[in-house]
Structures are given as C-alpha cells and as structure tokens.
Design a protein around this nucleic acid. Sequence first.
DNA 1: ATTAGCACTTTCGATGCAAGAGTGCTAATC
DNA 2: GATTAGCACTCTTGCATCGAAAGTGCTAAT
Lengths: 354, 354
Amino acid sequence: MGAGSNGLNERKKLILKAIVDAHIANGEPVGSKFLTQNKQIACSSATIRNEMAELEEMGYLEQPHTSAGRVPSEAGYRFYVDQLLDLYHLTEQEIKTLREGLRQKQQELDSIMQTAVTLASRLTNYTALSLKPRQPRVTVQRFEIMRIDDHTAVLIMLIGSIVKTKYIRSSSTISMDATVRLAAALNLKLTGITASEITLPLMMEMERMMGGYDYLVAPVVKSVCEVISLFDGGELRFEGIDRLLAYPDYYDLGRLRELLALFEKKDDLLEVLSEEAQHDDRVQIYIGSENLVKVMDNSTLIFQTIRQNGKPVGAIGIIGPTRMDYRKVIATVTSLTSGVTEVLNRPHGDRNSG
Amino acid sequence: MGAGSNGLNERKKLILKAIVDAHIANGEPVGSKFLTQNKQIACSSATIRNEMAELEEMGYLEQPHTSAGRVPSEAGYRFYVDQLLDLYHLTEQEIKTLREGLRQKQQELDSIMQTAVTLASRLTNYTALSLKPRQPRVTVQRFEIMRIDDHTAVLIMLIGSIVKTKYIRSSSTISMDATVRLAAALNLKLTGITASEITLPLMMEMERMMGGYDYLVAPVVKSVCEVISLFDGGELRFEGIDRLLAYPDYYDLGRLRELLALFEKKDDLLEVLSEEAQHDDRVQIYIGSENLVKVMDNSTLIFQTIRQNGKPVGAIGIIGPTRMDYRKVIATVTSLTSGVTEVLNRPHGDRNSG
DNA sequence: ATTAGCACTTTCGATGCAAGAGTGCTAATC
DNA sequence: GATTAGCACTCTTGCATCGAAAGTGCTAAT
C-alpha cells in the first residue's frame, strides 16, 4: 500500500489524526460517517471504513465492540504524538500568565518549581507534578552555628546552593565558645563528606578536638547525617489532584483510587522518573502501558527535565488520561520548562532569592 | 415518653445507638427486624418500629424512602457522638505504632506534625489533615548573615523557634564587611517588628547606616518582608486523600471532586479551622452541615488543637464521611494529639531537632 | 404497654423490546 | 483497480414491565 516509510499513506495519516483529534475532543469512539464531515478527507464513509479497518489491523485503532466507532490504541496515540501533532502555540494571554507567574517568585529552586507546577496545572487543567531527582553524592560545603539561648543553637549547613538548618538542644548550657569550636570542628572534618563516609573514628577524633564539649559531637553529627540522607532522597509533588476527577476517563473509581494511592507512595514513580529525567532534555511522553507502573495504563505522563548549569535539578510534568489534549500540554510543559530554566540560569542581577 | 432530660428513654437510646453502630458498619439503612437480633433490646420488631417512628419525629433518624430502614440524621450522629459513644481504646499494637512513629522523629514542629498526620491517616484509614494556624503577629528575633561567595550570601532569620533562610545575590561583590554591617543594621532596626511596621523612613535610616553598601538594603528588607508575610499565613496539609475513595459514601463523583478542590483551595477551611482551633482544647467534631463550608455536607471533620507552652501551634484531624467510625477516629486523634503535645513540651533532654 | 398480623409502598434485578449507530461485505460504478 | 452505494448484521442503550424482597404503619388482640 501507500507511501511513507511507516506504511501509512497520506489519507491514512489524515484519518488517524482526525480520529485522535475527535476522540480527544469528545471522548467517544468516532465512526466513519462522522469523519466525512472533515473537508480534508474527501471520500465516502465506505472508503473511510476500509481505511479504518486497515488501520485497526496495523494496531493503530481499536474497536470497543462490533458496532461502535474506532478509538485510538496506545500505538495510535504514540504515532499521533510522534508524527501527526502540529505544535500548538500558547496564546499571548497564556504566555503572559506563565511568565508573570514565574517572574514574581524569583526565589530558590523549590519555590520556582512549586510555582511552575501550579501554573502547569492551572493552564492545562490536568494534574501537574514536580520532581526533584535523587542526588547521588550530597555533601555539606560549609557549617555555621547560631546560638539562640543557653540551651538552644541552630546548626546551619550549606548543601549545594541550598541552606538547611537543624536545631541543637542540650540540657547543659551551650556556651558561645562551644558553638565556635563545634563549628570549626565540623568545617574541618565534615565538609565534602557524604553520609556514608562519616565513620566512628572520625567522630571520635572530633570529640577529642572538642575537649570538654565532647558530649555535643555525637548528637550533632547524627543530625548532620540525617540531613544529608534526607537531602539526597528525591521528592515528588503533585498539584491539582482534583482535576483528575474532571475527566470521565477516570470514572472507574477503582483505578482512580489506585492512581491516587500511587501519588502518595511516590517511590516507584520517583524511581522511574529520576532514571529517565537524567538522560533526555526533550519533553518525554509515556503513553499508557509504556509507563512501567501498571496502574497508569490509562494515563499519560508528559514531563521535561530542568537543568541548572547543565546539571539536572528537577523536572516538571503533567499526568492525565491517555486521551488528553497533547498539543496544549506539550506546549505548556515545554514553555514552562524553558521559562524556569531561564530564571534559574539568569546571570546574577541584583536580586534576592531564598 | 421516657425519662432523661433530653427526652430519650433508655430504650430509645439503645435503639439509636444500635442503629448508628449498624449503619456505620454496613452503610445501609437498618430496619426494625435487624435490631431484634441485638440482645440488649429485648422487644419485638413492632415495638422497635414504634420507637423508631418517634425517633424520626424527633429528628434523630431519617428514612431514605418509605420502605427502607432508618438512617441516622445529622442530629442523630451528633447525639451519638455526644452521649452514646463509649470510648474506644487503641490496641497495644496501635499505641506502639503511634508512639514509635512520633519518637523516631524528634524534630521540629513541622516534621512532628507531618509524622502525626501520616500516622493518623494510616491508623484510621481516613484522610488526615494538619493545620498551622495564622499567626497574628510574627516578628524576627534575630538576624544573621552567612557569606557564601563573592556574590552570594544567606540571610538567616530566627522567627519564634523556627529558622528561615533566604538568599541574597548581588552583581557587585558582597564583602565580609558588608555582611557584618548589614546584619548589625537588621538586628538593630528590624527585630521585633512586624511586616506592616517596616516603613520607608526606617529603610532609609538603615541605608544611611550602611554607607557604601546601601544598595543592599532595599532588596534584603524586601526579602524580610516576604518571609514574615509568608510565615504568618496559615497552612493546611492533607495526607491520604486517596482513602476518601475507599468509602462508598463518596461515590458521588461530583461531590468528591468539590471536596478535593476544597483541599486545594484550603483557604476557606483554613479560616474556619484557625478560628475554632484557637479556642477549644478538646477534640472538636463537626458533623455534616455543621461545617460551614457547603461542600462538606456529607463529611465529618474531627480535629484537636495542639499547644506548645500553652500557645496553639497547630491542629491535627481527620476528615471522612459522616458515616465514619467515630470511636476509633476520636481515640486516634486524641491519642495522637497528646503524644505530639508530650513530645513538643518535653523538658530539654540531650536531643537535636531541626 | 406490647405484640402479632397484614396490607401497602418502594426498591432492585431480570427480562424483553425497539431504536440507533456503526460496521463489513458485495456488487455496481468511475 | 480504486471508490462508493446499499444492505444485512451486531451490539449498545434506554425504556417499560414484572415479581420478589424488604420494611413500614396501622389495627386489633393480649
């Protein structure tokens, strides 16, 4: 049959695209008669039926039952996304919303990402997600201690470009001298060290350095360990979960429940995403069962990596029914990603962020 | 009719309790015949029917349709909760889970609360929520600045017992001298000051103090403002949203969707909760339309305030269908609250938290 | 005051039926 | 050889009907 290396002649492509478009719009199987309305497809319903039969044979279409119209299969969606989709350009208004939203919050990575997912969810009306990938080798670059009162101090750690704090409380008085010496010891011994490299001998050495304040070392070092460990675990957040319910595709409550449960477990998804996010900079699309997680059979995941100074620092994306508005979602995700990247990598101006 | 200041004789109480219990367990309307199985109610179905008719007249029961059994009305649930509920005691196992969970994380308020809601949700199988109320008058007690590199420093603020940080970036070099002077100026002029009390004259005075570094003042003060403002807004978090779907009471998707949307909007709920949480230390129960928010007609909200040093610092609770297992939920919430309170108010031992 | 008995009401599931939608195939047409 | 008109066939969907089941309210007897 027809031309094209993928075995689809022009008319088949036209028909497939029309079917996917229509199905995305209505959510119902689309029949041959309906397609005759499409002016680009200039032939009778019988011809269309023949083509559709062939498309089904090729695996791009499916038939819920004998006498319903056709529905795109996952392969059909895949083909659509890869080859048939003409890019959508956000409207002026949308771009404006987006840029303004990001610009307002010129803050640290966390806030920017949060803003981005909120925008993503709002603009597309789907559930959005943000990912902070696992960090393979996290170390503290700098320690500082701030004394609050006789029994309390705050340990301040600079990790990457993020600052983390942790309380130190002690029943004995924490003197100014103690904090200074503790900070010195920490900076000397624990900077550039990963959690797994903190050994008992190292701790004992620090205790020797601290003289009379040695009782502070053990709990503080334990805290440091905790923070580092906590930090290198990835994080996955969702925004607009309620929007899932707006789509009849999720009327199957059992499935929806599983999906939501997935959101709370997160770990599986995190694993997958962290893996993928590292490699590819382009927008990534996982349709239905292409998602390794079984629960997501009817869902599509679209996301894109965000880099800062060339290193992946996160990803944002959208999750929704396989029957989703791909054009808009893809456009939104890519625009948002480029927007965030721009803000993150902007050369230092006079600005503050935290 | 019978004795008792509330107009319910013993048998009526017994019947009402049995009906609520049965309905909670099965979710179906309960009929007179079923109740005869209850050994405590020693009379015929006809008698029970008469009592039920009276209970309905009094507003404690409802009839979905002529020939269904009875279902508790909101007033019925209310009476049940207030007067008929015998307290449930958590099992050894449950208490153990709970204590261990809390003890593990001897961290700062945020983490404890997070742990508590996770536990609450897991133990009860309902959706749990945690509330941080609005703070009426937030001020910074202490400023510190930590220099990171030539163009970056971190502003560290002690607010209440919480430490917040914010980046300062500048295209011009940030010298050591600049950070010291800036910290001094901040500590002198902005400690104990609320966001609304930061005036332009105040800022100008600070700029004068800073001499050649005056360009740093405006952006930094703006940051301080932002942090304070952010901080005094309350916060509401949910855990286990998927569990809502486990209950057939939420099969009405439209309603569920609204409820979830509410979770994302949060503000209304926050308003209500913040208000209520301040006043009462006992566990608070809002049944159905007692919740001012319309969407929650079929839901019950059970929560309790957590205090630290006598001041309300938050609340944790459960949200679920009006037909919920009150005994267990109430027991869990109260236990959890007392556990958290205990951890928070424990006298200083040698421990760290952050 | 309680209870047995009975008529009445309403839901629920199964069944059957007609309408509608869409296909696949065959035969005619360009 | 590709296209199309026409028609029989299949499958869903909505609707109406029917009988069983469940539960009540009322009356009359205890």
